[in-house]
Simulated assay, not measured.
Amino acid sequence: MATPAFEEIAETFDFLDDWEDRYRHVIELGKAMPPMDASLQVPATKVEGCASQVWIMPRIEGGRFDFQGDSDALIVRGLIAILHALYSGVPVGEVAGINATAELARLGLEEHLSAQRSNGLRAMVERIRNLAAAA
């Protein structure tokens, strides 16, 4: 089951009929996300496999997964915000059980993202799963 924050995004996507409106919403989600401190944007936090620059830094508090993320591309910042809504606050041991592909399919992202962006999104999900597994 998705988090309430992700469910809210899914409901908004259901309401927005036009992909252009959804695209703008993804960008707005990215703009609303707090920026990641530049000191954390280092090779150790960089996500490989993304066309854009992407950094993800995990935070585990009270056994729950959270992360900070950032990108140099607005649409990718929005995708990070969506992933944050999907995974933030989930018990660390349950992160691997989230079917990100199915949840993201509810938003219809795959059919509208370029192949490079789709590959980058998969790389971000894989990075999050690996970070949670290592915690």
Score class of each variant (00 low, 15 high):
94 E>N: 11
96 A>W: 07
34 P>Q: 09
19 W>H: 02
10 A>E: 15
80 I>T: 07
48 E>D: 00
82 I>F: 07
40 L>T: 12
97 G>Q: 12
52 S>N: 13
80 I>F: 06
16 L>H: 01
69 G>R: 00
26 V>C: 14
72 D>H: 01
56 I>D: 08
60 I>H: 12
22 R>W: 06
85 A>S: 15
54 V>L: 08
59 R>L: 11
96 A>E: 07
97 G>P: 05
59 R>K: 15
80 I>C: 04
93 G>Y: 08
16 L>G: 05
42 V>C: 14
29 L>G: 15
55 W>M: 01
70 D>R: 06
82 I>L: 02
82 I>N: 00
23 Y>T: 06
11 E>K: 14
32 A>L: 04
18 D>K: 13
74 L>E: 00
30 G>I: 03
86 L>D: 07
56 I>Q: 09
17 D>L: 13
16 L>F: 02
33 M>E: 14
38 A>C: 06
28 E>G: 13
91 P>F: 11
81 A>W: 00
63 G>V: 03
9 I>V: 15
15 F>Q: 14
88 S>Q: 15
59 R>P: 02
54 V>D: 08
19 W>F: 02
55 W>Q: 04
80 I>E: 04
58 P>A: 05
42 V>G: 14
39 S>E: 13
63 G>T: 14
23 Y>S: 13
82 I>W: 00
41 Q>F: 05
61 E>H: 05
89 G>Y: 11
52 S>K: 10
73 A>M: 02
14 D>M: 15
99 N>S: 13
20 E>T: 02
44 A>C: 13
45 T>R: 02
43 P>G: 09
82 I>Y: 10
91 P>D: 14
42 V>P: 10
14 D>Y: 12
56 I>T: 11
